[in-house]
Design a protein around this nucleic acid. Sequence first.
DNA 1: CGTGGTTTTGAGCCCCTTCAACCACCGTGG
DNA 2: CCACGGTGGTTGAAGGGGCTCAAAACCACG
Lengths: 224, 224
Amino acid sequence: MLTEIATAESLRPHTHAAFPASRKAPETLLSVGVPMSFPRNGEIFAEGETAGYVYKVVSGVVRVSKLLPDGRRQISAFHLPGDMFGFEIGDIHHCSAEAVVPTKVVAFKWQGLLGAGASTSLVRELLTRTMIGLRHTEDHLLLLGRKNALERLAAFLLEMAARSGSAEMLDLAMPRHDIADYLGLTLETVSRMFAELKEMGQIKLESARRVRLLNMDKLRAIAA
Amino acid sequence: MLTEIATAESLRPHTHAAFPASRKAPETLLSVGVPMSFPRNGEIFAEGETAGYVYKVVSGVVRVSKLLPDGRRQISAFHLPGDMFGFEIGDIHHCSAEAVVPTKVVAFKWQGLLGAGASTSLVRELLTRTMIGLRHTEDHLLLLGRKNALERLAAFLLEMAARSGSAEMLDLAMPRHDIADYLGLTLETVSRMFAELKEMGQIKLESARRVRLLNMDKLRAIAA
DNA sequence: CGTGGTTTTGAGCCCCTTCAACCACCGTGG
DNA sequence: CCACGGTGGTTGAAGGGGCTCAAAACCACG
C-alpha cells in the first residue's frame, strides 16, 4: 500500500531534521520525503500554521486535536506507525498535531504528491487514506454524540487493541487527560470508568497504562 | 447500467425514479449519472447495504446518519444542493441516507468514476470533496465533544445560514428531532435552546422552522 | 372541527463535571 | 538511604446541565 511513498521512505535513513525546509530532497521517484523526529509532547504542526506537508508515522504515536478559545480541547485521532495525517484543503492547518511519545515521522511535500506529473494511482491512494480518515471520524461522531462514558471507554480500548495487533494485553501510550479529550470526557470520569470496567471483571490494570482485556466480546457488547 | 439503479430503486416501496430510466445523461465526464427523486423521509440508502454509487444533491436536503442497536441515532451531516455524499471504501454503506424533504439527486457509479481510464483531475476532484467532508466532520467532533447545548445550537444556525446564502432569514428544512440528532442533544433541549436564544434577543422565531438571526457576530461569540 | 405530527413547556432526576484531597511512582540530590 | 518535588492517577463529595417522563399547545390537513 502506498508503494511509491513507502519506497521513498525506505530509501532514506531516519535522521533528526529539525524542519523539513532545512533538508534537501534527494532525486528519487517521490523524493520529497523528509524524516523528522519529535520528543514527547513535541509540536509537529499547530492550528493556523501554513500547511504544505503530509506526514507518515514511522514510530511513536501522534495526537491530532483542535482547541476552543477558552482551552477546551478535542482530540480527533491518535495516529500509529503506518498512519498518515496532515491532509489539508487550503494552505492552513486547522488542526494541530503533537507527539504523544518520542516519535519519528516522514514529511512529504503536498505539491510533490499532487503536482502535474502525479500518477493516478498515487492520487487514488491519497483518496483512500482520506476516506479511511473520514470513516473513522464519522464513527467517532456517533461515540461523542450518543454514547455514555462506559461505552466510550470500552470502545476506545477495543479500538486501541485492534490497532496494536489485537492482543489482549494493551499498552496505552497516552495519559488519562489525552484519553479524556479524545472521548469527550474529563480525566476523572475516564479514571472512574477504568475502575468500573475493572469492578465488572472486564479488564485488569497491570498498571495505569497497561491494560489486560479479559473479555473482548463482552467489551464489544458494552461498547454498543 | 442506467436501468440497474432505477430497477433496484423501484423495488423499494418508498423511492421513485425521477425520470424515465431510458433517458440518457449528457456525455460529460460524469456521464454515468442517473437522476432520482425521493419523497420526504425517503430512504436513499441504508447502513449495511451494498454501495457502488455516489450521489449529488440537485434539490432538497439529505441527512446522513448512523444508528446504535438500541436506536440512538447520530446525524453526521446535512447535504444541500451541490453537495456529494455516499463515498465508501469497501462495497458496504456504513451510514444511511434519507431525504429530509422531497429531494432530487443524481447517482454516479463509483466504478465509472474510478475505473481504469479515470482522469487524474476527476480523482483529484473526489479527493477534494472527501477532504471537505473530513474537515467538516472534524469540526463537528469538537462541537459534540466539547460544546454545551447553547453553543451547539448557535453553531448550527450559523452553519445553516452560511450554507444557504448567509441570509439573516433562515428556513430550516428539518424538524427538531433531526437537529437534536445532529447536535447530540434531545429535541426538548434543542427547543429550550431556541427559546433561550430568543430570550437573549439573538434570534426571532417567525415560526418553528423560520428563524431570523438578529446578530450574527454575537451568535459567533456564543458558538465559541 | 377532529386528527396526527410537531413543538413547547414543566418537574424531577441522574450522569457527568467540578473542586478538592490524597496517593503512587520516579528521577534527583543531600 | 531517604527526603524531596513533580507528574500523573485515583477517589470522594457536591452541584448542575441535559435527560426523562409527561402534558399541553400548536399547526397543517382531512
